[in-house]
């Protein structure tokens, strides 16, 4: 069903996302624009803490859409993702109508709208307002859940056997995030556009830190970003991401430090590097001992 696109151009995307506080790279802005124009879902992969979930929230905020979130976990099934029948209410209805109604009337009534508990996927399909559907941590769910998603993502319709097919009146903007702990199935990946959200470049990261921690002096932000980029170049078990840079900035401000010298770095390295072996290696290579 043709519907007016949410964004006018790639620059429009960048501006509106910046308006709600999310500074997007060229890659992110271009793929969001294309996902909207082509009507395809967007699969976002990348290291932890670079802003994958934040992107969905920012898109919802800047377009005035409602955000419907499906948080995946190991063992999630159709009842939690798609829809479920309210069995208790159905049993009550049946016992209430015993003796007074024929089975045909009861059966038609029991499998109706009133007894259907919609879960996030069905909710997103049925809404007529602009919607953003976020399927978070898709890789934690099993392969069976991906099969459920295939019908939803390609045709934007859900089939409830007792009630028929429910098609979306308004196509939601779908965003899937993944931490790459598992290879997603080919059928799912083929239906989506792919965005690998990597660590931002120096200029963008500086702007992000300054927008999140406004009281930070520019010179300190600059040396923070440069140091974090050098840390990412070391072979560490877990490279620090944008969330850690922001935490480091907040820590330094809270401690009242305004330059990143040897002592400050030595004292606060634990904020950025969460593994002991990483902290030791960084201290040795950057000559902090």
């Amino acid at each position: 069903m043709p519907q007016p696109p949410l964004f006018g151009s790639v620059d429009d995307v960048t501006e509106r996302l910046a308006g709600v506080g999310y500074l997007a790279s060229t890659a992110a802005a271009t793929t969001v624009y294309l996902a909207d124009r082509l009507g395809k879902p967007l699969l976002v992969e990348g290291p932890a803490g670079v802003g994958k979930t934040e992107l969905a929230k920012a898109v919802a905020a800047c377009t005035g859409s409602g955000l419907v979130r499906l948080q995946c976990y190991e063992g999630i099934d159709e009842a939690r993702a798609l829809y479920e029948w309210n069995h208790a209410k159905q049993l009550l209805r049946i016992t209430a109508g015993q003796g007074r109604e024929s089975w045909d009337e009861t059966r038609d009534d029991v499998f109706s709208e009133e007894f259907l508990l919609p879960r996030p996927l069905l909710t997103a399909i049925r809404r007529s307002e602009p919607t953003v559907l976020l399927v978070d941590e898709m890789d934690k769910a099993d392969v069976e859940v991906e099969g459920l998603l295939l019908e939803v993502l390609s045709d934007f319709q859900v089939t409830v056997p007792e009630m028929g097919t429910i098609a979306a009146k308004r196509r939601p903007f779908v965003l899937l995030t993944s931490n790459s702990t598992r290879e997603l199935s080919e059928a799912l990946k083929r239906r989506c556009l792919f965005l690998h959200l990597d660590f931002p470049d120096a200029e963008l990261e500086r702007r992000i830190v300054l927008s999140r921690v406004p009281e930070l002096p520019e010179k300190l932000a600059d040396s923070l970003v440069r140091t974090v980029r050098v840390l990412r170049g070391l072979e560490l078990r877990k490279a620090p991401s944008v969330a850690e840079t922001i935490d480091w900035a907040r820590t330094l401000l809270a401690l009242g430090l305004d330059t990143l010298d040897d002592d400050a770095a030595r004292a606060t390295l634990g904020v950025v590097l969460k593994h002991h072996s990483d902290a030791q290696k960084a201290a040795a290579e950057l000559r902090l001992n």
Partner: peptide
């Protein structure tokens, strides 16, 4: 640059 990112989004499936 936008063209590069757009084609990568459509053609690539793995990082």
């Amino acid at each position: 640059e936008q063209l590069r990112e757009g084609l990568a989004a459509a053609l690539l499936r793995r990082s």
